[in-house]
Design a protein around this nucleic acid. Sequence first.
DNA 1: CAATTTCGTGTGCCCGTGCACATTTTCACT
DNA 2: AGTGAAAATGTGCACGGGCACACGAAATTG
Lengths: 338, 338
Amino acid sequence: MPTIKEIAEMAGVSRGTVDRVLNNRGSVNAQTAQRVREIAEKLNYKPNRAGLMLAAQKKNIRIGVILFSESNPFFHEVLQGVAAKEQELAGYNCSILVRQVPFEEKAQFTAMEELLSDGIHGLVISPCNSLFIAAEIDRFHDMGIPVVTVNTDIFSRRIAYVGSNYRAAGNTAAGLMGLMTFGDVHVGIVSGSRHVLCHTERIAGFSETAAARFPQMHIAATTENHDDDVESFEKVSAMLAEHPEINALYFAAAGVYGGCQAVQSLNRTDSTLIIANDSVPATEELIRSGVIAATICQQPYRQGYLPVELLSRYLLEGIPPEQEYNYVDTDIRILENL
Amino acid sequence: MPTIKEIAEMAGVSRGTVDRVLNNRGSVNAQTAQRVREIAEKLNYKPNRAGLMLAAQKKNIRIGVILFSESNPFFHEVLQGVAAKEQELAGYNCSILVRQVPFEEKAQFTAMEELLSDGIHGLVISPCNSLFIAAEIDRFHDMGIPVVTVNTDIFSRRIAYVGSNYRAAGNTAAGLMGLMTFGDVHVGIVSGSRHVLCHTERIAGFSETAAARFPQMHIAATTENHDDDVESFEKVSAMLAEHPEINALYFAAAGVYGGCQAVQSLNRTDSTLIIANDSVPATEELIRSGVIAATICQQPYRQGYLPVELLSRYLLEGIPPEQEYNYVDTDIRILENL
DNA sequence: CAATTTCGTGTGCCCGTGCACATTTTCACT
DNA sequence: AGTGAAAATGTGCACGGGCACACGAAATTG
């Protein structure tokens, strides 16, 4: 592995000059620069990561993370991924500042401002869908603070997105449901809100696969529960009453517990195949008790771990994320592989 | 983050003394050692990773990897994981020496000897089940060369195992098959050999879940194909002829393509639910064409990546693997989330 | 033409750790 | 008390890259 020192010797210049050429800072004679570049190219020079990080940590890099509140078990697991990476990064004099705020643009904006005055060098955020937030992300970017969006994306100058491919999750749910019913099934879909992109995407994916692969799969009804268990109970009860032919449910949102309560109170557990999304404690319990057959998961731990990794690599080692869209796997969980 | 220098100042001694205490090398006055230890404890001292690695790479660490031959698509993907980690490690003056050998103890033994004379500092190996190999692993360990087993474990002084929990894979296969058939099914099991632990473990897991959770699931027959497609074709043909009631197959081994050919040649594709293990190109093709319903995967990429990570962390940073058994996830793949 | 700026380049130190070597202190034995 | 070994401790350098500062030469300005 070649080092800057070796390149300097070969080019007959000093380390400083090579440094200036390879990091294009300061002024260097055009011919000298050219020669240095050629030598670096020929030797396939890659900066040594350990040296890079050792030098970087003089700066005490700080990375801000804005997620939703702790009470949400999904984000709790995302946080564990963040914490794991924080642990690893501790040895590099690089720290993480986590802020958990309500799902509301005002609170998020305030959190961003606060982190800015804390002097962060990069930001991970699960943005709510607001032009204000998008503008603020752009502002961060223009100030030289790279932003990575996680779990939910937003049109802005963020350098990368880490999260689920929601359409693929919907596809998978339909495919699995088809396989579990020989394709002959009347489905009720429970969504959160038609204004939340990830819910509509999941439903679009579900419908797509249902139409393309299972001609006998009928989507009998769709309802919205606004991620609330009580509302979910009522809406699902109503849906099942109105559509007695329904023998499968797909939950594209939260409120799974409330919806399942409705099925159980109507004694239709055995005749209803239920597929959910994500793996929170309530869902796992319902899988253990046989009420839910399967759940489609989106690796929350990795959604915490990966964005911090991408950002720390960029800030500490100068390596930008390879991909703009970093999708996590769509995992199928049943009782046996929970 | 405290450094050795800071601890030295607080204890009123030199960096060298702190170094000797914390890495227990050389001789230090008992009281001084105690004081240093207390201060390090109080400050929660963790050695700086960048500094550690920078110092470590003077040694040009070499890690050996012994896997089975390239022609096996599963190990090809394992190798990609190894290569990915090698790429990351290149910047640390740490190199990987890969040797691919036939599944045979003699060849493996020779490869180990060769790597030894190459002066490796650690070894990743997918061992064949032989006392010779176990003894050789022990010998490596006693010479101070840590060994990590991957994919297959063996009773020896290896410091860690990375691989699948085969029993859980069998459990999952049965659970999934139960859900896809309402539990009412006659299963034929295709194994490789009753002498290969991972095959028998998968079958044990399958039987366990079948018995515990699906009283209507009957295991009609079991056959062995020795991982060979031609033999698989013949054995499955015979099994289906002898047991016309079979309407599901579980492949616990390779030879999936041959076995599926048998099903297709008997025109029993539509009436036979097939679940396989692992995701090689042939299997994926059969999923796309609707012959195989699902496959239970064991993250081959991660099985290449993780062992090298564990070993490099140990050798470069002195951090031993946290767990002895590092199981990869048991993933369910269907057409939609391949 | 002298004073000042700009450009191109070299040098030294820092980051945190490991390790070889140098130096001091302790202690046993004559 | 003197000697020598052994134990305990201090010191300097290496690892690779970033960056501030210094310095000479050339270009520009008044």
